[in-house]
Amino acid sequence: MNPSHAVSSSGKAELQTQRIRAAMWFLIPMIAALVLVAAYPLFRSIYFSFTDTSLSNLYGGQWIGFDNYLSWRTLPSGKTIFRGTLVDPAWWNAVWNTVRFAFVSVTLEAILGMIVALVLNAEFKGRGLVRAAILIPWAIPTIVSAKMWSWMLNDQFGIINDVLMNLGIISQKIAWTASVDTAMFAVLIVDIWKTTPFMALLCLAGLQMVPKDVYEASKIDGIHPVKVFFKITLPLVKPALMVAIIFRMLDALRIFDLIYVLTPNSSTTKTMSIISRENMIEFDKFAYGSAQSTLLFTFIALFVILYIWLGKVDLSGDNK
């Protein structure tokens, strides 16, 4: 990528310097904003995780090193006991729940989102209305949609059980959010319902950047639409799709409010964010909870690096 091959070489260098200088000015406001709202709070949280701070004594915490993560001592009997988040079964249960949830929800959302986007990209009557309709789930505040679904999923007077009973799919009313077998399923239904529009919209924006004549040409050549999708459309929208997936993944790994409202205390849906909040605020173990959120952060970071590496997502665009 070299936009300036028409200019003389000395002018080229000068131009490049000028562009970089401009780029710096363009970046400063954003960096300043992020330092303010992200860097400082982030630093505080990581710092707290190495202390014994509690919420009733926010400024008097003592440095205790890695004790919140892992510590051990040997009892007089010679037995060694381990303490800390890294040996806390509740934490690992939460890790497993989070990973399971994120993987299933994002995969299904990507597929469904792509299908919806393809539908919306086609020309048909009433497309505008359909486009507005699919955004409704996204537009309803999470707090509300979680409550709405918990109402619809209610075992006695919920409409979901009523529909399924009338259709003869189930014979007994299911307690969706209470039963350990269906709690995760209920969360997934609501999350997929709610965030597929987000995926669809990003995919659609990508699709609309695909030149129309590509389709026309392939139509004339008589190539099967499915083949067109995998050979032409998908590669063209891949960058947009990859970004959409990353951001959905980040959201899914941090999922908090939906579960907090829908199934707050079910051990099968307790995620890392939920358990970290529980410790920080409910259980008066602020530093311990901070350690868990720091671990969550590390975990997500590792995940993203892995994703970028395996998915060959082009970060800088330098390889173009």
Binding site: M1, P3, Q16, R19, I20, A22, A23, L27, M30, L34, V37, A38, Y40, P41, L42, F43, R44, S45, L58, I246, F247, L250, R254, F256, M272, S273, S276, R277, M280, S290, S293, T294, L296, F297, I300, A301, V304, L315, S316, D318
Partner: peptide, 29 residues
Amino acid sequence: RVRFRGRGLLLMTILAVSMFPQIAVLSGL
């Protein structure tokens, strides 16, 4: 559109910002 050193790193850092759980930045914020 502009090539400069550390561009990939900067993008990663920006991404990292959205990795922190809301609940964890709450008290600092």
